[in-house]
Design a protein around this nucleic acid. Sequence first.
DNA 1: AACCTTTGCAACCGCTCCCTG
DNA 2: ACAGGGAGCGGTTGCAAAGGT
Length: 235
Amino acid sequence: MGRAPCCDKANVKKGPWTPEEDEQLKDYIQTHGTGGNWITLPQKAGLRRCGKSCRLRWMNYLRPNIKHGEFSDDEDKVICTLFASIGSRWSIMAAQLPGRTDNDIKNYWNTKLKKKMMNTLISMPEIRKPLHHLQSPNSLTNYSYPSQPYFTNTSSYHDQALTIPSSPITTAAAAAAASDHHHHHRYGGYVDSSLDSSLEEIKQLISTNLCTSTVDNNLNFFVDDTKEVENVMYY
DNA sequence: AACCTTTGCAACCGCTCCCTG
DNA sequence: ACAGGGAGCGGTTGCAAAGGT
């Protein structure tokens, strides 16, 4: 059983959008708005697409002021800082990066930034030892980073002040090292249960004494060492 | 040149959240 | 208080392009 599908799958087109469809969707939304109802929008716009597909296309590609292309060092820094404190909350990150979409950030993290972090981390002698078994990206597996790791109490994350560690990059790198599950099927996809304890070791290592000097020298392209702790409010 | 592998990105799927009646 | 349903989110997949052998 399960819930009813959001649209008639049989009569709905899937796959890449054509320029004509893009134009049709853009024209409709620019003239009429979304009306707050994506389910009925495709029919009104004359598109044979699922409402969710229309929403995604608009949000990630067609809406005005979308930024495409390379991420700046500043953007890297924001992503790493947030990843260190909140994990893979891409939409929250997107809210902090004007013009970037959650999908963009997610893809960027999974394909590039995570590797960048890994390489940085592995190059750090203090961290190399505990991470010796993680050095090959191909050995990385299914660790799930806690979804809300640093909230200060148990209420909803929407109105929480987040505590950002003083060296978020190391924490993000450690998390990256332990959480490379994107495309893990392409790397073999087995599960290594020792990773849970590895992450704890890394976090402990970082939080106890490994903070600033070496870390910042290695990571000076991101780390803002002017603040011990910064609080960021979302929503 | 042909084939294989890896990478990057767009899009889909299924789940949870949250609003409304 | 509760159920239904749409919106939004994060994980995953498919596929084309790029790179390597």
